[in-house]
Computed example of a mutant assay.
Amino acid sequence: MTSASGKLTSEHFKTWLKDVYFPNVGHSSVLLIDSWSGHCPNAVKEAAPPNKIVDVKIIPKGTTGKIQPLDAFGFRVWKNYVRRFEDSITLMNEDIELHKRNNIIKLQTL
């Protein structure tokens, strides 16, 4: 199931729980999620099979960029790269729309 906007929805999250998370964890597990409303504990309860116990822990709002390794060390580096690239495109007056998904994907292969 894909999203036309490219954004994650709570239905995508439930599908991931059912198809990926629960089949690959034991009887009891801990799931650490950020505070995005689509990651609500109710979605986890709705998707959980009756034989699985999951303890949901939520990262407090405003702390994601400080404690999630990919946000702190991966995405920040990537976003800085994209900003510099956008600045260069603007200065060179190139006709490239970086806000479009396909152009961003192409950027990753440069």
Results as ranks from 00 to 15, higher is better:
H27S: 03
N80R: 07
V82Q: 05
Q68Y: 04
S35P: 09
N51C: 02
R101F: 15
Y21G: 01
A48C: 15
Q108I: 04
L8Y: 12
D71E: 14
N51H: 12
K45T: 03
C40P: 00
I33Y: 01
E97Y: 06
G26A: 12
T90R: 15
V56A: 11
L91K: 14
F22R: 11
Y81I: 04
A43V: 01
K52D: 01
S88V: 09
N42S: 15
F75M: 08
I89P: 02
H12L: 04
I89N: 00
V30R: 15
L107Y: 10
T64G: 07
L8W: 03
I53N: 04
A43F: 05
V54E: 05
P49F: 02
C40T: 10
N93Y: 04
L70R: 06
E97R: 10
P69R: 06
T2F: 01
K52Q: 05
Q68I: 06
H27M: 09
S28M: 05
M92T: 14
S29L: 14
T63Y: 03
K100D: 07
D55N: 11
K45W: 05
D34K: 03
L91Q: 15
I53L: 15
V56C: 08
W36S: 09
K7R: 14
K18P: 01
K45V: 04
F75C: 12
S28V: 07
E94G: 09
S35T: 08
L32A: 07
G65A: 03
M92H: 13
L98N: 01
F22Q: 07
H39A: 05
L17G: 00
S88Y: 03
T2V: 10
H27T: 10
L8P: 02
K57Y: 10
H99S: 13
R76I: 05
Q68T: 02
P60I: 08
S37I: 14
A4D: 07
N24P: 01
N51F: 00
K52G: 11
S37E: 09
I96M: 08
V54L: 02
W16S: 01
V77E: 08
N80V: 12
K66E: 04
I105N: 13
F85N: 08
K45F: 03
G38L: 04
Q68F: 02
G65C: 07
N51Q: 09
V20L: 14
I105C: 03
N102R: 13
